[in-house]
Every structure is written in structure tokens, then in C-alpha cells.
Amino acid sequence: MVFQSLMLLARNKGPDEFWRKRKIFRIAAHFIGRRRNCYSIAIRNVHRALVYSSKGRALKKADMRALWETRLHAASEEHGISRYILHEGLMRSNILLNRKTLMDLAVWEPRTFKALSIIALARTKQDGLNSVQHLDMPDGIITRGMLK
């Protein structure tokens, strides 16, 4: 829109009232009772709903991360190591898999995950971490440190 003077800009009320309100009612369409039919109530609830959805986007990521960690804890305990040993061992072996991928492997490819957990344990054992001192070195793992 082109305004030829400030006066005209000030007089301009924006889009038509019907269309302005319709945008809000469209968002409030699934609310119940007067919250979807009366504009002054609908707008309040739409604002609140939009705030919730903004916060929810961050919460969803945190929730998923917590779920992955719970599942990884279960999966690595199954093979006798803690989740921290799994992460530490994989990082030291330069196997850069994130939580989601590791969790997917643990659920859908349990043997692959078992191999990864054995590698993590062998690497941490080889590096002499205190928390794995009581565990036995797994068989059949050849690392660069052994080759020399």
C-alpha cells in the first residue's frame, strides 16, 4: 500500500475488521464454547495457546532427549556398562553417533548396539578409566592401541 501523506497513514485502519477477526477465529476453531465464538474471549485464549505452543516446541525436544537417555540407560545396562561409559567410549573411539541414532540401534538393531557397547567398554578399559576397573576386557576387540 502506498500512503501519499502521513495523514492518510494515520487514517488507515489496516485490513477489514471481518478478515482481521477471521484470522483469530480460524486459530480458535477447535476451542470449546464461547472461547471460539466471542472475539474478545477468543483473542485472549489464542494468545495463551500460541504461548503454550512456543514453549512446547522447546519442551518437546527436552522430553525426547530424556526419553532417549532413559532408553539408552536401559540398553547399556543390559550389556553391563553405564550410559556414561557408552558415550565416553564411543567419543574416544571417534564413533560420533547421537542419542537418537544410538537409541534406534538399541531398539531395532540390538546386535549392532551390542557391538558398539563392547567397543566402548574396550576403549575405556584400554584408557584405564576407574569406573570400568571391575569389568573384564571383552574378547575379540582389536584397537589401534594394541596394533602398535
Binding site: L67, T70, R71, A74, A75, E77, E78, M103, V107, F113
Partner: peptide, 8 residues
Amino acid sequence: GLYKPIYH
């Protein structure tokens, strides 16, 4: 069921 990798 927290000890299972399929926990939800």
C-alpha cells in the same frame, strides 16, 4: 519396564 530399551 525402565530396564527395556523399548520403554515409553
